[in-house]
């Protein structure tokens, strides 16, 4: 138990790194948040209906807002979409920084130097893995989805259809785990061994396939910890206690703490993978 605890929280020794990444993400997200605030304030900010927004989801308020002011919300959604894309590219920089900090512990400005030095290599590597994930998802899900309606009319029960879906999900998840582990090791090989992108990807894949099943329990623990955080948030977000002005800001603090912890857990995962002597 103690060693699991050590693994789980090992990344939290890099508090400066976690905070840096957190701030970068926060800066990007707050642009969307402020837009949401402005649109809501401009459209229904003086209405008494907004009191309903404090308590869980206010279906009628939100629907009337979408019906009447839907077009003014579409730029926000557009912005969120573009921002996600920008962050995907920016994430190559962040990952270059994270891995450089973990590999060259103690080096000055390791995060920024790593991000700048390995940006393009990490970007190329990330694009390859994302492309492979898309292919993997398409290969598994498109045949299934395209058969569902036919099976529904032909099969005696829907249970097998559901369970096949569950089975495919687990197979897909194994693939995702392999890709995740392999992509991590690819970056290790790029930064630690100064390898080329394609060679790193290939070696990463081989290592990923070899290592994934050994690290699955630990990865599941990380996933569970993240799930617990989501569940805690769902309960708190739904609570009527946090509906006062102070309560809402306490909720915000908890939300941001969760985001910070999740980054810490991600770094703990990377540390764990790095220290498996591959």
């Amino acid at each position: 138990m103690k060693s699991i605890g050590n693994i789980l929280f090992s990344g939290f020794t890099h508090r400066k790194l976690i905070t840096t990444i957190y701030l970068l993400q926060f800066v990007m997200a707050i642009t969307v948040g402020l837009q949401v605030y402005n649109v809501l304030d401009a459209s229904i900010g003086n209405s008494l209906s907004i009191n309903g927004l404090k308590y869980g989801n206010a279906h009628m308020v939100i629907n009337d807002l979408l019906n009447t002011h839907g077009p003014s919300l579409s730029p926000v959604l557009g912005q969120a979409r573009w921002m996600m894309l920008v962050y995907l590219i920016f994430a190559a920089f962040i990952h270059g920084g994270i891995w450089n900090s973990l590999i060259h512990t103690g080096a000055e400005n390791a995060f920024w130097n790593g991000g700048a030095t390995y940006f393009f290599k990490c970007l190329g590597c990330g694009m390859i893995w994302t492309f492979l994930l898309l292919i993997w998802s398409a290969v598994l899900w498109i045949p299934y989805i395209s058969r569902i309606t036919i099976w529904m009319e032909q099969w005696p029960s829907e249970a097998p259809i559901l369970w096949i879906g569950v089975l495919i999900f687990f197979i897909w998840l194994i693939g995702v785990l392999i890709f995740f582990v392999a992509s991590c090791y690819s970056k290790v090989f790029i930064i630690r061994d100064d390898r080329q992108v394609l060679k790193s990807v290939w070696k990463g894949l081989k290592t990923g396939i070899r290592q994934t099943f050994r690290v699955v329990p630990i990865l599941l623990i990380f996933a569970t910890a993240t799930g617990v955080l989501y569940a805690i948030h769902a309960v708190i977000d739904d609570s009527r206690i946090l509906a006062s002005t102070i309560g809402i800001f306490i909720l915000f603090f908890i939300q941001q703490l969760i985001v910070w912890i999740k980054i810490g857990l991600r770094i703990s995962t990377y540390r764990y993978l790095l220290h498996r002597n591959v």
Binding site: G33, I44, L53, I258
Partner: peptide, 13 residues
């Protein structure tokens, strides 16, 4: 404006 803040904060999260 608490309700609006809540939704803005949710969107950030």
């Amino acid at each position: 404006k608490g309700g609006i803040w809540k939704y803005a904060m949710r969107s950030i999260y």
